[in-house]
């Protein structure tokens, strides 16, 4: 639950940063924070209290029936969100990287990182 709340908090902080900071790099950092918040939420959703990691090892109490199918008897965390968050992190990373590279290019082209300086395209 704490993870969930902190995830939400991170999202709010990130968005606050995106909306108030003028420096593009800071906005990107804000975006990154939002991303992290989202990842935390995902993880938090899959988490079940007192459960183990979704890896069938000694920590997991399993039993087999006659047909040989394996049954998991103890609580384990939902593996899917964990799998998802991995993908999401990769994607978030890619986007952040691209954002940063764009910001650098932009700085090279026009020498400013203040987002208010880029209002040519409008109306």
């Amino acid at each position: 639950m704490l993870v969930l709340i902190s995830g939400v908090l991170l999202i709010i902080i990130g968005i606050w940063a995106m909306l108030t900071r003028k420096n593009i790099i800071r906005i990107i950092i804000g975006f990154s924070i939002v991303d992290t918040g989202v990842h935390m939420i995902i993880v938090a959703i899959g988490y079940i209290k007192n459960a183990t990691a979704p890896i069938i090892d000694s920590a997991v109490n399993t039993s087999s029936d006659i047909s040989g199918a394996v049954h998991v008897n103890s609580l384990i965390v939902d593996p899917v969100p964990s799998a998802l968050v991995l993908t999401a992190i990769v994607i978030g990373l890619a986007v952040t990287a691209l954002l940063l590279s764009f910001a650098i290019r932009l700085y090279k082209v026009s020498g400013s990182l203040n987002i208010d300086d880029y209002e040519e395209l409008k109306w």
């Binding site: 995902i42 998802l84 986007v95 954002l99 764009f102 290019r105 932009l106």
Partner: peptide, 29 residues
């Protein structure tokens, strides 16, 4: 790599990123 193109790209990424963040939260719930 023109100024307008780059800043439009940044805007696009930020918006796209936000949209996908929303999408992702929705998906997981």
């Amino acid at each position: 790599q023109t100024k307008n193109s780059l800043i439009a790209g940044i805007k696009y990424m930020l918006a796209g990123g936000l949209a996908s963040a929303l999408f992702l939260i929705g998906v997981i719930f």
